[in-house]
Amino acid sequence: MQYFTNIKRSMMSVLEGMAVTFSWLFRRPYTVQWPDKIPEPLEKTLPATYRGLLEVDTRICTACLACEKACPIEVIAIEVDRNSETKERHIVRFDVDAAKCMYCGLCVEQCPTDAIHHTTLFAATTPDIGDLVLTFIKPGERALPFKPKDAPPAAIERGAITQALLDSRRGVE
C-alpha cells in the first residue's frame, strides 16, 4: 500500500508545485532595471538615512578631528597648520579614502556640526582606485575652520560636492 500512497502523494505534490509556479507567470516582475529603464535616478529613491559615499562640507567643518579619531581604519586624513604669527588655524588637507571606507557611520556621529555626512550616492566607479581618494580641499587652498557662533552658510543639496568630485575624476564635465 505504501507503494500507491507514494505515487498519489508525489503526483499531488508535483501538481501543487506546478500550480504555484504557473500562478507566478501572471504576477508583476520585481526587477528594477537600473540604470536606464527606471522612472527616476535610484539615488533619489533611497531613504535619507542611507549610508552612501561620504561628503564633507568644509565650510562648516570646525577642524576638531573627532571624525578622524572615531574612524577604526584611518580612512580620514586631516592636516591643520597653524600660522605662527596670526595664531590662525587653516585646514590644509581633508582626504577621505572612499575605496577603503567601510561606510560604518561612526565618523558621522562624532561630527558636532554635521560637516561630514553620508550621501545616497553609491555608484563610485572610477578608472583608477587612486581616484577614489576624495580630496575635499583642493591642494594649495586653505579653509578657515568654522566657529559655531558664525552664521551657518547656505545649505547645499546633499551629494552635490561628492558627485562633482567624482565627475571631475571621470572626466565628465
Binding site: L46, P47, T49, Y50, R51, M102, Y103, C104, G105, L106, E109, H118
Partner: peptide, 24 residues
C-alpha cells in the same frame, strides 16, 4: 533595514549603550 539603520547587509546598528538610529 536601509531605512532603519542605513545599510542593507552590514547594519552596524548597535552602539555601546544603545542604538545608532531611531525608528522613523
Amino acid at each position: 533595514t536601509e531605512e532603519l539603520c542605513g545599510s542593507r547587509l552590514t547594519y552596524n546598528y548597535c552602539r555601546i549603550g544603545g542604538v545608532s538610529h531611531d525608528l522613523p
